[in-house]
Amino acid sequence: MLLDPLPIFFKPSRYWLLASVGKLLTSGTRRVEFSDFWMGDQFCSLVFTLSNLYLVVCLYVEGFNSNWRECGSVSRFWPLSFFLAVLPFLMRLIQSLKRHVDSKLNTHLINGGKYFSGIIAYLCYFIWRHKGRNHGPSFAAWCIFQTIYSFYALTWDLLMDWSILRLHVQYPLLRQQLVYTNHIYLYYFAIISNTLIRFIWILYIPARGPDIILRTFIAALFEMLRRWQWNFYRLENEHLGNVDQYRITKDVPLPYDLDDAHADDVDEDDEGSPSRKWFPQRAIRLRRQRAVEEV
């Protein structure tokens, strides 16, 4: 469906998605733009989906008539499952290093450390699963590195991606400028829910309870919901950052007023052109009105 050349099913959007994924696979060979690392962040929340792509290969090798649970992470395919799971983290790490090389900002190295710690945490998790989920050294290593990654990622979410937890602002623990001012309570809900879901991996620890595959699916579902929520405040922060650096304006006013009927009541100089003391908006408005009248 994505490769369908016919102009149906939103062909420009499908091809844009393919081009964006292609850029991710070639991370480090070109300048990293916002759409590149934003798309990479989306894939970082699809660990469950990507890690289970190997299941198709396993079913073909083992046979579709066999027990599909035998194709879990305890099989000989678990290294492939691990590689597919951490591939987005690896691409984001490369992007962070590339941005550091281009900008010389150490902030990108710190961000790259977050993805590196995520790779280590998932490595320990897959090793623990491969060894039968015993409470031994592999379990302890997984808990330690997963905790480090969770605190690392949570801190980056709140302080860098969302730029909140500011003091001396109108709304405590938020920031001075907000876009979603009609829904202030959602900011606090996002802080709490994002924190809880960052530690959803604790669901794997109890020996009793739902099946590990069901737990993994629940954790993956909550992670996708967390990322969906994260997108709104990440884009808001990016927009406000662009405003502060004068790359864009927060509000884009029209260069003319549709209901202004007094545009002709403006002084003109001897040559019939608008006076230099006018604001540019007034000059543009008058030229537009004259063009309409000529048409």
Rank of each mutant, 00 (worst) to 15 (best):
L2I: 05
L2V: 07
L6P: 06
F10I: 15
F10Q: 12
K11E: 14
P12Y: 10
W16H: 05
L17E: 05
A19R: 02
V21I: 11
T26I: 07
T26N: 02
T26Q: 11
S27I: 10
T29F: 04
E33H: 11
S35F: 07
W38R: 07
G40D: 02
Q42A: 01
Q42L: 02
F43A: 08
C44S: 13
V47Y: 09
L50A: 09
C58Y: 01
L59D: 00
F64Q: 01
F64I: 10
E70W: 05
C71K: 03
S75E: 03
R76Y: 15
F77G: 13
L90A: 10
M91Y: 12
L93W: 06
I94Q: 05
Q95H: 04
K98E: 11
H100A: 09
K104G: 12
L105S: 07
N106I: 15
H108E: 09
H108V: 09
H108W: 14
H108I: 10
K114N: 09
Y115Q: 08
F116A: 03
S117Q: 13
G118T: 10
L123W: 00
C124T: 11
F126P: 04
H130A: 08
K131D: 06
R133E: 15
P137G: 09
S138A: 11
W142H: 12
W142E: 15
C143M: 15
F145H: 08
I148M: 04
Y152I: 10
Y152D: 08
A153Y: 11
L154T: 08
S163G: 07
S163V: 10
I164A: 13
L165N: 04
H168C: 02
V169E: 11
Q170G: 14
Q170C: 04
Y171D: 03
Q176S: 08
Q176E: 13
L178F: 03
L186N: 00
L186H: 01
S193A: 08
S193W: 01
N194K: 00
N194Q: 13
T195I: 03
I197D: 00
I202F: 14
I205V: 12
I205P: 14
P206W: 04
R208T: 07
D211C: 05
T216W: 04
E223G: 03
M224V: 03
F232S: 00
F232M: 01
R234I: 00
E236P: 02
L240T: 08
D244M: 07
Q245K: 06
Y246R: 14
T249G: 06
D251F: 07
D251N: 09
D251K: 10
V252N: 15
D260W: 15
D264G: 05
V266E: 08
D267Y: 04
D270W: 13
S275R: 15
K277H: 13
I284M: 14
R285P: 14
R285S: 14
